[in-house]
Each structure stands twice: as structure tokens, then as C-alpha cells.
Amino acid sequence: MSVTAHAPGHASGHEPGHDAGKRDFLKLVAAAGAAVGVGAIVWPMIDSMNPSADVLALGSVEVDLAPVPVGQAITVVWRGKPMFIRHRSPEEIKAAQDVKLSQLTDPQTDAERVKAGHEQWLVVIGICTHLGCIPLGNKPTDPRGEYGGWFCPCHGSQYDTSGRVRHGPAPLNLALAPYEFTSDTKIKIG
């Protein structure tokens, strides 16, 4: 930089301020031009690491719920993640609805977590909100914890029949994913 200040343009006899202003302007324009150019080429490079079109194309799955009996659950894969779909019994639904919000770590009513008219179906992302393990409880032989939902074997978090965290280090309820009923027994996730 110091060399630039001594460059030939800076000859004696000129107003130094005038000349320095022009030089600063040229430097700014050059630096700004270079920054725009670099940005224009760096963005495509960064964006190339975002999900590609074929990955995004797997963004939705359709599930037929008819074969799932009451009290049972299935696991389907959506965007590489396990989705728990549970066919709840009336007792389980009641248990979930009767919980007082004040007892919850992450207060949320059961109604907010299911679709109205399809209360028997609970659809949640099966990933423990603590550190990403997959909780047990989908198979009839699995431990379901004290609250009858899911039990995470990694650090002992327990979820209730609405997938809400009731005990343990997990800070949040099992996450919900966007889905809709395409018919009474079919849903489309994503």
C-alpha cells in the first residue's frame, strides 16, 4: 500500500488531496468490482452443496394407513428421517388430551399435534430432540416409558402418547412434519 502512495501519478505540483481522492475512488471501484466478481462465482459453489433436485424430489411420501391396527405403530422414511405413525387407542387419546399444560416441558395441547377428525393418528418425526437418537416404542416389545409413548435409549428421555416430552434431557416434543389426509386411510407427508 505504501508503495502505491509513491506511484508516479503522485507528482509534485498537484494538490495532494485532489489526487488522493481520485486514487481512493479507483481503489474502491476496483475492490468492489473484484468483490462482486468473487461473490458471483462463490455463490454457485456454495449452492452446489445444497440439496440437489433429485434429493428434493424425494421430499414427499404417501402412506397407506389401512393395515395399521389400533395400538400399533409403523415407521416410514421421509427425507431420510424416520416418521412414526401411531394408531392410538381411545384410552391413549384420552390420556393425551387430559394432561394439564402446566405439567409439560414444552406445552402443547394434543389437538395441536393431530388433525381434527383423525385424532387416532399421530404422525411425528421419530428423532429424539435431545441429541438425535431414535426413541423406542414403535414395536410392541419395545419399552414405551412411564407415559406410554416412546422411550429414548440414549439418555432416557420419555415421551407420552402425543409424542410430547415428559421426562429427561430432551427440551422439545417430537417434531411434527407437514402432512395431509388424501383419503380417510391415506396420508401424504411433505
Partner: peptide, 13 residues
Amino acid sequence: EAIMRDVNFGWLL
């Protein structure tokens, strides 16, 4: 071919 069609800016890379 997937790089050319599916990857963001894959054609450019």
C-alpha cells in the same frame, strides 16, 4: 449426468 441436471449449478461446475 446428475451433476449436469440435478445438482445446483452442477452444469457450471
